[in-house]
Design a protein around this nucleic acid. Structure first.
Length: 563
RNA sequence: UGCCCGGUAGUGUAACGGUAACACACCGGCCUUUGGAGCCGAUGUUCGAGGUUCAAAUCCUCGCCGGGCAACCA
């Protein structure tokens, strides 16, 4: 990769270019993506993944995957597997650089010993509550722990005993000795080791003391030779602490750069809240297609390329911001429009009998698979006397801008014929149950030789040939643009959208979909993109609506712009 | 009441002392065998007040507004 001609010009790349110019780290760029394996990755992580891997690629460097697994109580192997799968699916490759903070536990321990020997760390017997009290507040200075001046020898002995398991959880901690009156609370003698008699997903029971994130993170970056440690804004106030550790230890000093995390309209983006939705069964799991997780989006049918394009387009800055879900959907449509095969399927079937069409006759018609991609070819579709059309495509008393079928009106059936509506049969409650139409044999294929026009083209399926499928229509998970914008004492779950999932079990789709493979995305013409769900079987097809097509009629209808 | 970081169309980003721009959204039109796609066009932007300068979104000062920081979480 050419390091001199990157078109992207955000503040992070600018800093890196400057460092390259001054050869702060020689000619090297090395980044990393450091997730904690305590939940599934979401679109916010995708932003960070794209950033770190793309930057490495653009500057001819490398990007590591490192699991920040310093808290055995929250971390699980299930999560590391899902994280790896998601990154791969997104299209990035860490090659053989799969690391774990837990790989460095021994080194981190030795670093702590160095600090103790320098008189820069001490074992403290204060309880968690006491430490908190001693820390002071945002406006009041802290005060020093009574254990702060233990000798290095005593600290060394105590720390070793902590490791040996001589003390119960919470009895002692190791703290850095910095400055209890610092205006930056992170510098007020932070805890760097705690006792946790807890089994770790990788080190098992080898350890009963674990480094805190603050102690592990910067040094892990240093050990890996990371040049640019890109992280989110909330770690900005930790930077002086990381710098202090690195300087005390005299080891390689990566440059930390903070950027604003991604927020998206109509969803939440914290692992804690997403976990809550999963555990309380508001969604079917981490990969529920309504979730902003990578696995949810994958299951929903979002192409990874769309996510990458989205992450690229939103850019990176230090301003807290909320990206528009509509932008993400734009990129999803953009990719799918070019790649998805078109098929016909009816969500809410309305039976139509073509009175003047011969009983028992079946015709083969030719349909284009993808007008955006001629190489996708054509396929045969079947037409017969009884068909289904979309309920929404007929109105007995059409308003002014409704172009579709209505009594006496003629429309085109895509790739088939013009049909004209003669009558509508109704049930006892006045609901339309069946339409009777006539067709014009001269319009076969969809063109009228006499040049007459119709205002609408409808999708349809042949009643005798179609197959039944289930469709799951998704709407936003929350009704509020910002689900967290709630009155005092409220809970974000109160803004959950009761209509986020609508299941339609009786859809009729064209027979070419028989045996459609899980994960494949189709465009159901005029409706949207639909992805075959993992729940689909040979017996039953299940589709997730990935995203609707843009729909001018829906806009007119919803804005009340009728008549 | 402390410290740190931010504030550019509705949203997200660009402009690096020299004509405020791009994408999405929105609105209008063209085209159309998907009310899709595509094409064309319109509206609309520098938080405020001072200062420096021939010239400020950009530099300085003071406000205002928003966010973060007081886990043995990350």
């Amino acid at each position: 990769m050419d390091t001199g001609e990157n078109k992207k010009n955000d503040f992070i790349r600018e800093i890196i270019r400057e460092d390259l110019k001054t050869e702060k780290y020689g000619k090297k760029v090395h980044t990393r993506f450091p997730p904690e394996p305590n939940g599934y990755l979401h679109i916010g992580h995708a932003k960070s993944i794209c950033l770190n891997f793309s930057i490495a690629e653009e500057f001819g460097g490398r990007c590591n995957l490192r699991f920040d697994d310093t808290n055995p109580e929250k971390e699980e192997e299930e999560y590391v597997n899902s994280i790896k799968e998601d990154i791969k699916w997104l299209g990035f490759d860490w090659e053989d650089r799969e690391y774990y903070a837990s790989d460095y536990f021994e080194q981190l321990y030795d670093f702590a010993v160095v600090l103790i020997k320098k008189g820069k760390a001490f074992v403290c017997d204060l309880t968690a509550e006491e430490i908190s009290e001693y820390r002071g507040t945002l406006t009041a200075p802290g005060k020093e722990s009574p254990y702060r001046n233990r000798t290095a020898e005593e600290n060394l002995r105590l720390f070793a005993e902590m490791r040996e398991g001589k003390y119960p959880n919470g009895a002692k901690v190791l703290r850095a000795k910095i400055d209890m009156v610092s205006p930056n609370l992170n510098m007020r003698d932070p805890v760097i080791y705690r006792i946790l008699h807890s089994s770790h997903h990788r080190t098992g029971n080898k350890w009963c003391i674990y480094p805190t994130y603050d102690w592990a993170h910067g040094q892990s970056d240093s050990i890996e030779g990371i040049t640019h440690s890109i992280c989110t804004l909330e770690f900005e106030v930790h930077r002086p602490l990381y710098d202090w550790f690195i300087e005390q230890l005299g080891i390689h000093h990566p440059r930390q750069i903070e950027f604003a995390r991604l927020n998206l309209t109509y969803t939440v983006m914290s692992k804690r809240r997403l976990l809550e939705l999963v555990e309380e069964k508001h969604v079917s799991g981490w990969d529920d297609p309504r979730m902003p997780t990578i696995s949810g989006m994958r299951r929903r049918g979002y192409p990874s390329e769309a996510i990458r394009n989205f992450c690229s387009r939103i850019g990176v800055a230090k301003t807290e911001s909320t990206a528009d879900m509509a932008l993400l959907e734009h990129f999803v449509r953009d990719i799918l429009n070019k790649s998805a095969s078109r098929v016909m399927g009816v969500m809410r079937p309305l039976k139509v009998v073509i009175d003047n069409y011969p009983e028992g006759k079946t015709e083969e018609l030719s349909a284009v698979n993808n007008p955006e991609d001629p190489s996708a070819g054509t396929r045969k579709i079947l037409f017969s006397k009884v068909i289904y059309i979309e309920k929404d495509d007929f109105m007995e008393e059409p308003p002014k801008k409704f172009y579709r079928l209505a009594p006496g009106r003629e429309v085109r059936l895509r790739y088939a014929y013009f049909i004209k509506c003669i009558s509508a049969a109704k049930d006892s409650e006045g609901r339309v149950t069946e339409l009777h139409c006539t067709y014009d044999p001269a319009t076969k294929g969809g063109d009228a030789p006499d040049g007459r026009k119709v205002k609408a083209t409808l999708h349809w399926v042949s009643a005798t040939h179609c197959i039944t499928a289930e469709a799951r229509l998704y709407n936003s998970l929350f009704v509020k643009e910002n689900p967290l914008d709630i009155p005092e004492g409220g809970n974000f779950k109160e803004t959950l959208n009761p209509e986020s999932l609508e299941t339609l079990p009786e859809c009729r789709v064209e027979p070419s979909l028989t045996g459609a493979k899980s994960g494949t995305v189709y465009q159901f013409e005029r409706l949207g993109y639909f992805c075959v769900d993992a729940d689909a079987s040979d017996k039953k097809l299940v589709f997730n609506r990935t995203v609707t097509l843009k729909d001018d009629w829906a806009k007119i209808k919803n804005s009340g712009g009728l008549k």
